[in-house]
Each structure stands twice: as structure tokens, then as C-alpha cells.
Write a protein that binds this DNA or RNA. Sequence first.
DNA 1: GCCGTTTTCGGCCCGACTGTTTTCAGTCG
Length: 584
Amino acid sequence: MPEITRDTLADTLDEIALLLELKGENPFKIRAYRNGAEVVRSFDGDIVARAIDDNLKGIKGIGDALQDKLHELASTGSLEFLENLKGAFPPGLFELFEIQGLGPKKIKVLHEKLDVGSIADLKEVCESGRVAELSGFGKKTAEKILAAIENRSKFAGRFVLAKVAESAEAIRSVLRDHPAVSRVEVAGSYRRAKETVHDLDFLVASSDPSELTAFFTRLEGVTEIIARGDTKASIRLENGLQCDLRAVSAAEFPFALMYFTGSKEHNVALRQVALQQGLTLNEYHLAPVDGSERPDPTPDIHEERDIYRELGLAYVEPELRENRGELEAADAGELPRLVDQDNLRGTFHCHTTESDGSSTLEEMADAAGELGLAYLGIADHSKSSFQARGLDEDRLAAQIAAIATLNKRDAGIRVFAGSEVDILKDGDLDFDDDLLAQLDYCVASVHLPLGQDEKTMTRRVIRAMENPHVTMLGHMTGRLLLRRDAYPITHDKIIDCAAATNTIIELNCSSMRMDMDWRWWRRARDKGVKCSINPDAHHVRQLQSLHFGVRIARKGWLRREDIINCLPLPEVIQWLETPKGQRS
DNA sequence: GCCGTTTTCGGCCCGACTGTTTTCAGTCG
């Protein structure tokens, strides 16, 4: 029986939703499955164990039917209902959902009328002209589908946050300078600091919306105009990134900003809150529902903050708007005061030319000083990472001495001598304890081998964390965004072990990692686990990624006091000098 | 399929754009 995880359960419900869409089922039933998937994903507790025990009663959004299905799946490893559904469609049909402009209805028609079962089939029937003859389709639809197939293969369709920031800020700046624009914001998942984004959503308040959509389509670097109307336009940039613009009036701006910031789930939940109060909320206004005697609150609303206030809620920072409990916390006045960019006092886990970095120790120290940091932790690779020119005992001893010398010059920055020590395949560390004890701190990370099963990997990492010299756990899952999946590891157990052993978990904010994932930080924080926001910089430029690390930490509900590198220098020194078991 | 101090039945968030239509369905966010 395959291992059943939280993700298996959630993904299965999403898969059912997709299949029901293809069948043309009741849209509300489909929504119930999608909603169920989200409930499973964000459930605070061991949902798999409860599903196995058939103990899911009372969880909002999981009714009798979903309870039975989750129980069957968790306890037997398969689900007859799903297998029956799947049997009705060729497996290649599902990739059609990745084609822009195709949804369940059109895919259903393509499958039933033209026997399309894959993207290759789709391409063929578009080119042969048979798609254009279908009722509800046409020549333009066929052309658009072909273009979308091209696009899909050219660009995977998602981009990591740090990589789109330059485009986002450049376009924001150009829009701000337009004379007919009074306010501009980049909304969407970029504003919510998702680790990857699909597109950029620009919002402007303008006296001349249609001029703005036209202006937007003429921006430098536009390679394709996907759509252009009076208030809305979509373009594609040279790197494949899609950018959308919405132009609204100044009065509508706060509503539109909230709406287009999302997430969709947050918005839906917020609308429910409004409806309960006799108000209807959309991207243009907050108004009494028809027949309500409640006075119109709109005139007093100029900022998003005012909308939340009008609904009796504390302001919810954009990073938190994922419908993962933020509205309940806002209602109860229990939202955290999130860490700010200027709270960072230093950082750990940076490399130098001694291993696989491309900036020297001095260059890294100077660059960190220029960023205003008071301390910098160096952690070059250990000897087993031979591919990264990992340091052996002698070279590490020499580096410790070099750092001591560097600290004697008054450069305004304290450098800590550390090591990114490999966690070997059985959980042993790459250096013995005597050497580790000479370091200011130690990051323990898994590099090779990566192919172990979840139990073995979890045990391996836990053994390393139990070492009294391991200060923090590096890039917990080894994922590379859009390139390599996380290796399997039981997050709950690692978090519990971190809490029990006073081991910090790193938020590795290298733009391709953002690891540990933000979805786990709130739970870790609640158990008293500390975070270190580390850039894993291999070049002075990469220290900049600390900015995105803070954004992700905010997304994980982290406060200044949860983050070790928000401590001022004297306190962090004292903390590092205290034996691990006595730190708090 | 889920939910309920109005309801165990009848609701379930909603608007813009496109392409195909001649009043609207599908998709997207």
C-alpha cells in the first residue's frame, strides 16, 4: 500500500473535483471537493491518522461523503470512487487543463466530439481545422489554443518570486509616472509573497482607464497583447511572464486592491463575513445587500485597512491572506505583529571562495556591512561535499583563524565562523564533535544522498539535530523551486525535534529554495522553534535575497522575536555561547 | 457535497473579456 500523506488526501480531492468538472457535474458539488482539499491541507493536527481512524466528524467542510472517502483512501490506500471516475477518461486529458483558455467545458467537448486525449491530439485537430468547425469554437479559438500550446512548452508558466521582482518594480515605476495615474500597486500573489508566481497583477487608480490599458500594451518589452479592453489588459513580456492591468477610479482603488491581492480563498471568506453583516463586497464597493437597512459605509473607505475595520476586523497584512486562519485571528484581535525588513540585524549561512562561493570572505563581510548588518555567519561546505570543494579539518581550522584575524580589524561587522556540515546518510555529521565545538555555530544540511524514503530521511535529520553542536538545520527539504521536488521528510517530527533540542530551523531564502516552506512556520513558531533567515549566498549579490526571506517569514506568521537573526549582536553572541540545551 | 440561533431544503461570490453568438457561454482571477 502506498504511503498516504496529507498531500495525498488533498490532491485526491482536487483530482476528483477535476474529474467531476469533466463529467459536467453540479458546480457546487465540485466546489465542495475543492474546499475539502483546502481544509485537509490546512488542518491543524494529524489529519491522516484521523482519516485512518474514521474520526473526521465535526471538521467544517468535511461532511459524511468526504469523511467516508478520506477514510477509505487513508486506510486502504485507494479509492474505488476515484478509480471508476478515472476510467472514463484517457490519462493525457488532464494536461489539457494547463492550456490557457481551455476549461472543463471545452475539454469535455474536445474529448467527446473529436476524441482528443492529449495535447498532441489537440494540436493535430487544431491544425487540421476540425476544432474551428465545432459549435461554440471557431477559427480564433483554434489559433489561440495553438498559441497557448506553444507558450506552455516554451515557459513552464511559473516564476520564482525574486526573479519577477525586477519586472514588477520597473513596471510599477513607469505606471506611477503616468500623468493620469494617482495610485499604483502590484497586487496578486506577488504582493502576498508567494514563493512562485504565475503572473503579475498591476492595479492603477486613474482618471482615464482606457488610456491606461492602451499605455500598458505599449510598454517596452511587451511581446504579446493577450487582451485589451477599457478597464483591463493583459500582456506578455519577453521572458514569458504574463502581466495584467486593471484600471479603476480612485474611490474603487482600495476595494480593487483587496480583490486583486486575493487570495481567492481569502476573498471568498471575507465576502461571507460581509454577507453575515448584511453587506456585499466586490472589487468596487462595500454596500448594503438589497433590502437591508444598514447605511452605506462606502464614503469613509480610502484604504484596505478601512474595509477590514468596517467589517469589524483588524488589518490583515497581504502575506497572511491565504485563508489559513487569518480572518479568525483578525476577528479575535490575535494577528501577530509581523517581522519587518529593518528588524534584521545579521544573517548566517553564507559561502565564500573557500568552497563553492564566488566572493571572498572579505568581500562577503564588507557587503554584509554595507547592507547594514551587524554580523555575518560564514558556513562553507564540509569535506563530503567534494563537488562543492568542501573544507576538510585543516582548511576549516585555517578559515577559523582567518575569520579571527578579520574580526580584529574594525570593519563594523562581526563574522562568525561556522560550517555547513553535511548530514551523512545515516545521520552522522561530517566533522567530529571536537572540531564542531571550536566553531561559533554550525548549520547541518542534507546534500547527498537524496533518494531515501521518508522514514529514513526523517531519522537521519533527527539524529543530526540531536547533536549538541548543531545550531540550525539547513534547507530542510532540499527542494529547488520549479526544478526539483522536496525530498520526503515528516515535517511534524522535525519540528517537534527542533523544539525539543533547541535546534533552529533555517528559512533558506535563496531564491530557488524558500525552504522550510512558509506553510509550516506558524506551527513551528507555536511550538517555540526559532527561525534563522539565511540567504545561502554564494556571491555578495545574493545577500539581497534576505529581503524575500523576510517576506516569506511574514507569510509564515513570524514575528521579530521568532527570528534569531533579529537579535542585536551582543545578544546573539551571548545566545551562541550558551550551551544548546540551556538556550531559550 | 456542505451547511443551518431564520432554514434538514435550498441556497452556495462575482464581474470582465473573448469569441461565438444575436443574447450568451466559457474562462479567468
